[in-house]
Design a protein around this nucleic acid. Sequence first.
DNA 1: TCCAACTAGTACGATGTCGAACTATATAAC
DNA 2: GTTATATAGTTCGACATCGTACTAGTTGGA
Lengths: 169, 169
Amino acid sequence: MVRQLTPARAGLWRHVSRMANDNLGPYFALLYEVGIINQIGTAFLEARLPSDLLVSHFGVVSHLIRVCDGATPIELARAFQVAKTTMTHTLAGLEKHGFVEMRPNPGDKRSKQVWLTPAGQQFRDEALAKLAPLFEALEDRFSSRRVAAMLPDLAEFRSVVDRLRDEMK
Amino acid sequence: MVRQLTPARAGLWRHVSRMANDNLGPYFALLYEVGIINQIGTAFLEARLPSDLLVSHFGVVSHLIRVCDGATPIELARAFQVAKTTMTHTLAGLEKHGFVEMRPNPGDKRSKQVWLTPAGQQFRDEALAKLAPLFEALEDRFSSRRVAAMLPDLAEFRSVVDRLRDEMK
DNA sequence: TCCAACTAGTACGATGTCGAACTATATAAC
DNA sequence: GTTATATAGTTCGACATCGTACTAGTTGGA
């Protein structure tokens, strides 16, 4: 999962972000930073997962543990904002590994429920354990307190963009 | 390019971000916000591009205009942090549209140079024009000044993670 | 000079994600 | 109750991205 090309880390938005002369610059710059952080974060996690498992698999298992076990595939698709066909694919992978179990939804015969298995629990625990030293190293260079301080503005911006997206659909 | 599923906008990291009880929370929460913003930003732009063109095409053209016309494919691949095979594919698309022109690199017979055509210029101008009203709407709800204020911390975090990534490779 | 190691670019196959189309079930309107 | 519409999930085909493997050309050290 590690990229063939190592240097630079530019990303989609760097270039555009230099357009200046108007007020678009900061928005593009934000998207630039955000794109890279997302990319690196995903790559970090994925490099510490079994080779045939992706961040999406980790995410689903985490969701079942933390938010609600027995969620339906469509709920999961919405939670992760992916197409439902993509969730079908992801769940098939998890089922093949024995990390989740699909059961019929007693309240709706069209639907199913996704339940975590002990193996799925273990998968998530191990992934988190492998991630720990990484976050310790991070803490030394950019404290979680500083990150926490950035969160409110970032969340508000996200929320604004999210609503704007729906309105402009 | 508009998603089949509209609601929620959760994303990869929400779930994990609630693990609490330790200092990992803020990091995961940041990755969650960042993932969504990136996703929405890309979808916004892509929805305003001709249907068979992606943000990557827009990015390459912007790069040629703003950073350096006549760049080599490998330079572009590094700049965007994608595999060189991906850049080959992207450039083929741009060439098919007549937006760029591939010429031999006079200094290295293995290599090529990518040059923008007038049509490529126009493509970028039109894309930016379509984007303008969107950013005006944004300005009303979350000013570019506020975004600019967020940038230094975000850029530093990005830089830290970027270096960490190389060290832990 | 010559050869080993490296680099630029492409071809190919694998895989993840998507939208469209479909089946089965649910819901709402009449 | 019947029928139209909406929803859950799958299958399928399209396509973007990736890694591997290859060719052609470059570079640096014996």
